[in-house]
Nucleic acid binder design. Structure first.
Lengths: 198, 198
DNA sequence: ATTTTGTATTGACACTGTCAAGATAAATTT
DNA sequence: AAATTTATCTTGACAGTGTCAATACAAAAT
């Protein structure tokens, strides 16, 4: 009978445990307090143990960002599918709501995903997931303005929603603004702007 | 005759010198390498000298952000004044161009100004300058849609331009997009969206 | 059963922000 | 003018960080 809870010398699933602990730390702590040593501590392991699974802190954070992006793309896809029988404009609005919701629920990971890559390393599948998200958006916009104008239209939508998410996360919106309700009005204007372009 | 270049024990203008050195460091180095000690080094002073002028690194960065905001508001004002004889829509476009240009010329300071306040402390005049910028924008937008819808309109404009600036700074725009020329198209759509709201 | 391989620990290095104690010079008071 | 106070800067320390090298350990392969 193997000892029940004496932790073995070899963790066994450390790589996974570090990713989980890292994401948890990003949720609890302010970002600059998320250190490699803190994550190791949370995983119940020595400070240099991560070295065998992630060369640097940046690599660990990069992997967390990549996983976040996967969930993000899924979320958008689910929203798009859910609104399949709606109008193109309504579908875009549904996706935007899902986008903002994701950013609010995962502010730290969102920051990692979209922030400058100084804290986390850009892995290939991170870049891939990023492009996937973009073309999702472009498709949804193309359904409104046609493929011709889709690029600039998608840029408008992405900039707006990303900007709003960022301003909200960073608490830079004037206090008299309720982003929840404002989003609807903003999205209405965006759609109007897109349709004017056709 | 005072010795020409022997540095005196008392710097004399250290507070100012630290702000200048700090801003320079933000320009040269990647942000996480901008340390208090590095700034002190650049100002030719010992590592703990800043303590008498700024209690923490956050205070120093906060002051740099506040000054950046002052320049930012000035820049927007100049743009607005320059386009005084233009249409309200054209004036808004001029301001947006100036906004983006500022963000591109001062990416690090811009990040400090609009990022979450974990690295720099929010001083009162920082908050004031931030609100000033917002009402500038609201005024420009009100000239198009009227005061009634100005709030949501300003939110749309700010989100879009801020989002675009952020995406550009963080190099998250797909490579096939030229933000310089896209801005014009995006602003056209935004104005159209605003005008549809009237 | 022995070797090899992968994993985790310990200890070290240079760096960070901040604090406390001292040195120095300028400003103020006497 | 001399003495004292005040503001500024330096030095040294502490706990924390990321990363590397050397070492202990256990599982897998021979």
């Amino acid at each position: 009978m193997p000892s029940l809870d004496k932790k073995p010398y070899h963790h066994g699933e450390l790589r996974e445990a570090l990713l989980v602990a890292g994401e948890a730390a990003l949720g609890d702590l302010s970002p600059e307090n998320v250190s490699l040593r803190e994550i190791a501590r949370r995983a119940g392991v020595s400070h240099a143990a991560p070295k065998h699974h992630f060369q640097t802190l940046g690599e660990l954070l990069g992997e967390i960002a990549a996983r976040g992006f996967d969930r993000f793309v899924e979320t958008l896809q689910t929203a798009a599918n859910g609104g399949a029988n709606q109008s193109a404009a309504a579908r875009l609005q549904t996706m935007s709501r899902a986008y903002l919701r994701f950013a609010e629920l995962n502010p730290a990971v969102y920051g990692l995903m979209f922030g400058k890559r100084e804290r986390c390393v850009t892995t290939p599948n991170l870049a891939k997931a990023s492009l996937a998200a973009w073309s999702q958006l472009e498709t949804a916009v193309a359904a409104i303005v046609g493929p011709q104008k889709a690029i600039n239209g998608a840029l408008l939508v992405w900039s707006s929603v990303h900007g709003m998410a960022q301003l909200r996360i960073d608490r830079k919106l004037p206090p008299h603004i309720d982003p929840q309700s404002s989003l609807e009005a903003v999205m209405r204007m965006i759609v109007a702007g897109l349709q004017a372009e056709t």
